[in-house]
Design a protein around this nucleic acid. Structure first.
Lengths: 168, 168
DNA sequence: ATAAACTTTCAATATATTTTGAAAGTTTAA
DNA sequence: TTAAACTTTCAAAATATATTGAAAGTTTAT
């Protein structure tokens, strides 16, 4: 397989994976493109590479920046804005974990905490089932939350080292 | 807050979380409903509770069964089929991890393995960047894969116990 | 101030996903 | 058999999500 074909496959695979995990396909593809490209690209470059419109490219790049995955670069004496992706995989994973935790996990934890407090007749099966399920899910969500917190603070080698101690 | 309102909130929250993670909202809602309901429900019950059509309820229930989250129950002397969800949160997490690993992670790992093998000029920045990114992502994906494998085999208390040793 | 170079916005459009519901299919009891 | 009870299917419709592209906005150089 030649490099251009390989790049294409990578971009497609990343786009598909993204869309299966609730991330806009185009956003994942732009990210993939920047990941396999050594130099920073202009909006124009990205539009052309992926055959997308200016508006789409612009919005997607802003989104990627808000996720902390892509940064702007200014080149001396140039008007155009260049974009590049952090290529450190551990940073990417941490950044995604951080954002999804904030945007999705935390709001759910807040609701679960509330629902855990709902009072009822402990003889009532409807109440018992509700309470047990919500309480258990809340516990698990808190475990996930704490693990993510640890991951966010951790160094990559330490994190996976600790994980792999589990296999022993 | 009263129980019916609390149930409603839980169903909504679960549906929203699901859709943010690439799971059909209705599917997550049906699952949530079954999680907080002590007894098995008929298609009819579910249609009514969530105001969805028969076709939708039927397809969603089949989906949930294919994910291993819901089972059919036959009641003696009755024609109707009843559905109930496994309410053990750890089982649910494992089941979801198992399916997503098989359906989404494994196909991507296969592609990454291929792309890792692509040959090129190690002096070429385009090749170097491609190769480094793909190789790094492949390593991380394999780490995730192994961790999931461990999780699938593990008992809940052992798994979280091991995770929490990481905090020490 | 002007205009060229570039970026952003957003209503309209296109695409993808989900849902409906009625018809077809199946199972069971008598 | 027959028919009632129940389940499944799937084309059409509804809804949700993503994309376009031209106009408006901004910045910079002269």
């Amino acid at each position: 397989m030649e490099l251009p074909e390989a790049k294409q496959k990578f971009i497609e695979a990343w786009g598909k994976l993204g869309s299966e995990w609730g991330i806009n396909r185009t956003m994942a593809q732009v990210h993939a493109l920047l990941l396999v490209t050594p130099d920073a690209l202009t909006t124009e470059d990205i539009m052309e590479s992926l055959s997308i419109s200016r508006g789409n490219a612009n919005m997607t790049l802003r989104d990627l920046m808000s996720w902390g995955l892509v940064e702007k670069q200014h080149k001396a004496g140039e008007r155009k804005e260049y974009f590049f992706a952090d290529k450190n995989t551990w940073n990417i994973a941490r950044q995604v974990a951080k954002e999804r935790r904030k945007r999705e996990l935390e709001p759910v934890l807040k609701i679960l905490d509330e629902l855990t407090k709902v009072q009822g007749d402990s003889k009532d099966p409807a109440y018992k089932t509700f309470n047990t399920s919500v309480t258990d899910i809340n516990k698990m969500a808190k475990n996930v939350d704490k693990t993510l917190e640890t991951m966010l603070k951790a160094e990559e080698s330490w994190f996976w080292g600790s994980i792999f101690k589990m296999f022993k």
